[in-house]
Write a protein that binds this DNA or RNA. Structure first.
Lengths: 174, 174
DNA sequence: TTTTTACGAGACTCGGAGTCTCGGAAACAA
DNA sequence: TTGTTTCCGAGACTCCGAGTCTCGTAAAAA
């Protein structure tokens, strides 16, 4: 059994909540770890004890944001609905996704985390909607779609309904 | 006539050259404006007099790097050769492109410059290779291709010959 | 009770971005 | 020639955020 005082779950949640709120209010770049600690009523050291840095913290605070799609449906979700739902979530959090991907370019560890916690899961969701395609085709479509999305994000163009229609049209023609 | 001492062209080139060398040697993040000034034998203020910051400087130092394709051919360049040539240039400078696109996410002015000096021109080159397509198709193909490239860059996957084959296969099926 | 780890708080170091100032140089104008 | 304007190298300087260190205290297990 692990000895010593255990990690306080309420503190963990307070920090994640504070990070999410502050980033949505002021934007990723304008938020400091000191800000997060202050709003959470925590010490900076408590943040650095459990997260390697601001990037990983914000990633944890948002990694489930995008995929809060209603999983209640017992049907296999359609490609269209998956894409719509993703763009809805990613649309609100677009500045955060841009900032995380940007920061990850300067931080290998964060880059790995970002791919494992955000990029790969979204790709898997898409893949699951393409079970009827040939495997080679499937990878091709997934690559094209996520390419379009990330390009759109980094170029700061909206992930709106018009984009979804465009993306679906592309897929249809492959 | 503009009065006062004119800008020294040799200094301008020395700064651009120093920036390019240093970034290739040590990587974008590890280079400071003080480093560039030192190697160029210039003062920091001379850099800040002509460029708003490190990002814009490095962008200028590399903005023609990618498209040093031999324009000697009087034939219209093929999509294949354009893509190969672009990936060859972008392959070597991939870390720089990643860093510039990343930094641009935190700097609106740099973002505009990056799109105007790098993103748009490459898109135009691609577009010129697709003159035989219907205009709507053309935009679609350009979007898909540049989406694949930027995704590849930000995910730190190689822009190698295998990728070019993949991209061309995608285009062929649209 | 002792040991071990977590916690809040705050002081601290470190490094890079960008600014300011100074003495001097290169152009133009009177 | 002299004065004005802008450029230049050099270096000191401020500002700010990331991350570290320490201290007194709290909560769990041995």
């Amino acid at each position: 059994m692990r000895t010593g005082r255990p990690r306080d779950e309420r503190v963990r949640l307070a920090i994640l909540t504070a990070a999410q709120e502050l980033v949505l209010e002021k934007g990723y770049a304008a938020v400091t770890t000191a800000d997060v600690a202050a709003r959470a009523g925590a010490g900076k050291q408590t943040i650095y004890r459990w997260w390697p840095g601001k990037g990983a913290l914000v990633l944890d605070a948002f990694s489930e944001w995008v995929s809060q799609a209603p999983r209640m449906s017992r049907h296999k979700p359609s490609l269209s609905s998956t894409l719509v739902e993703f763009c809805r979530g990613a649309g609100e959090a677009a500045p955060v996704l841009r900032a995380l991907m940007a920061e990850a370019q300067f931080d290998e560890d964060l880059h790995r985390r970002l791919i494992a916690q955000l990029v790969r899961p979204r790709g898997d969701e898409l893949r699951a909607c393409l079970a009827d395609r040939r495997p080679a085709d499937r990878e091709l479509v997934v690559n094209v779609l996520s390419g379009l999305v990330w390009q759109r994000l980094m170029l700061n163009e909206p992930l709106d309904a018009r984009f979804v229609r465009f993306a679906l049209r592309v897929v249809q023609r492959i």
